[in-house]
Design a protein around this nucleic acid. Structure first.
Lengths: 150, 150
DNA sequence: ATAAATAGTTCATTTATTTAACTATTAAAC
DNA sequence: GTTTAATAGTTAAATAAATGAACTATTTAT
């Protein structure tokens, strides 16, 4: 596929992914309400899209231990953004859902982020962006595969 | 540039950047020695490439407050990876450099990361990768611009 | 010579994380 | 069916990373 000496391409990718990430995260953080972190927003997003999920789902998605999710849920529960309900059939399982306040906050913040990302992507021609996202998607699959077989 | 309704492109980008990041970080972490974190490796990398830098340089690059750098340097100094020396001309300034142990550890870890990233990028044709990196680079510049004017 | 700016540190607090030990519940083995 | 395994989640102690405010030391500007 690639030539033998791909060192400079690897260097470039490492440098770019680091920088783009750092700047991107910084801009995303600017859209947040003062009492929320980006991790918390991503968590709200996951629960919102799933409508309801378990701590184990979150742990898998965010690639952290379940105890980290417990701690995160405690913080977000204290702020009144999430609810916990036990499964009646399997009493071990906990279902996480957003409260009205949690959903409202998510929607508000997500709208700002969409606006931000939209204004960034607006700097690209549709074809260039499509090509980029297609390769990005492929990269995603490659990483998933590696992570699966480990 | 883009059509009016770019909502799904924005969604796709948000989803992909989150996922690729999470999986990528997870794989990078796997290359690390048990007594080091990825943040610490990125810090070693910056100092190595700069040969010598100040806490302020690091704070700017990593977009954190200087006190965060002090704490990071304390941790890394305890492990014997970095040295601090005062500027003789301007006694306020501190120069950070890697110790031999720090450099050796950096080299060892960076080699593993290069190998990993190489094996990932190897899944792409040279042209596709080149196009991808070119757009990524442009994205980087766009983000830099936004971050500059804020 | 005094005031303002800069470089860095300290300290208290918060968030996010891991590991190990634990509770409660369900599923499997025999 | 009862004992054993596995699963879902929590608790608690420890560490890393970050912020913000107050502080020291030094240099630059007025």
């Amino acid at each position: 596929m690639l030539p033998i000496d791909i060192k400079h391409l690897v260097d470039q990718y490492i440098e770019l992914s680091f920088s783009v990430n750092k700047s991107g995260e910084s801009l995303v953080r600017d859209q947040m309400n003062d009492d929320m972190t980006s991790d918390q927003h991503y968590t709200l997003r996951y629960i919102y899209q799933a409508k309801s999920c378990t701590p184990s789902d979150l742990a898998k998605r965010f690639q952290v231990k379940k105890s980290a999710i417990t701690a995160m849920m405690n913080r977000m529960w204290k702020k009144g953004w999430v609810q916990r309900t036990r499964d009646e059939k399997d009493r071990r399982v906990v279902y996480l859902t957003l409260t009205e306040a949690g959903e409202a906050l998510y929607m508000k913040t997500e709208e700002k982020i969409h606006h931000l990302v939209g204004s960034i992507l607006n700097n690209f021609e549709q074809e260039e962006l499509g090509q980029f996202l297609s390769t990005y998607q492929k990269l995603h699959r490659v990483l998933e595969d590696i992570n699966k077989n480990k």
